[in-house]
Nucleic acid binder design. Structure first.
Lengths: 152, 152
DNA sequence: TATATTTAAGAAAAATTTTCTATTATGATT
DNA sequence: AATCATAATAGAAAATTTTTCTTAAATATA
């Protein structure tokens, strides 16, 4: 499938603000409303767009205590890895989980209200998952930058 | 401001799919279309919603090489910190940057096409920023989980 | 209890999306 | 270069959705 410069610009605009009307986008792209509409539908159908979402303000909903957790497994057998990944993905406090190179461990991005809630998360949820060897938590003092925009 | 259970559910729905019509939301919430409309406008005005965006598929646009970079500064003076944060925020490859506790350093989430592009990023961009003492890169083998949904 | 204030509902108006048809551009083939 | 097929674009019409407006109900306040 051909994915031209106009499609790229369109995706950039939609990543910035998906509530723009096709008319606004058509002005920015020098296209007709229908052309914009058809391009968006094509991008959606081809899988370039995973979805449209609202971004909630973390401070407002009192969930702005971010912790990165490094995790090592006791063993790295297929069974252990699969089991750990399945369990950790279920936890709503875990926004992101990455399998990392090097020390063969994981990096988790955990979002909670405060230290008390993080403690609960560690004790009641994370450490009850099997096969965890060790954990190392890094607390975020300040979120310097956070964007969802992928540059192409 | 009062932020009730219905507002929470509404934010959950909008975080999952912001393209739902007010009619669909009104059915899920047992409200009228106008009531949903007014609640959304209120949440927007009060700052609960930072924006509405399209999520682009990383694989499709060939930007799915994720690297986490740990960075230590040579000094931690106010000047150095401010300068570093300003410069690093400008880099489009850096999706996220966190100031961490403990070793007083930073964690960067970097998104590029491949290792070649990461090398370019390191050599031409990251290491040209002043005050960096040392860096340590962790490559993502697999993205086990990634959500933008904040639980409330 | 009476009075204000907020919240909600339904209808109407305005705006936007979506469909449809026709036209133009693009690329491949000869 | 000419022809054909395919894809992209534009404008108008239809369908849907958002937004506004008015009225009614619920909640809180004095």
């Amino acid at each position: 499938m051909i994915f031209d410069a106009t499609d790229k610009r369109l995706l950039e605009f939609l990543q910035q603000d998906s509530k723009q009307t096709n008319k606004e986008l058509s002005n920015k792209l020098n296209l007709s409303v229908t052309a914009v509409y058809e391009r968006i539908k094509k991008l959606e159908k081809e899988g370039f767009i995973d979805g449209y979402i609202a971004l909630v303000n973390k401070e407002k909903v009192k969930k702005n205590f971010i912790v990165f957790c490094h995790i090592k497994l006791v063993q790295h057998s297929q069974d252990y890895v699969v089991s750990f990944e399945r369990e950790v993905a279920k936890l709503k406090e875990v926004l992101e989980c990455y399998h990392l190179s090097g020390d063969y461990d994981y990096l988790l991005k955990v979002l909670v209200t405060d230290m008390a809630e993080f403690r609960e998360f560690m004790v009641k949820k994370l450490t009850t998952i099997n096969h965890i060897g060790s954990t190392h938590s890094m607390f975020v003092i300040n979120e310097v930058k956070h964007t969802t925009i992928i540059n192409m």
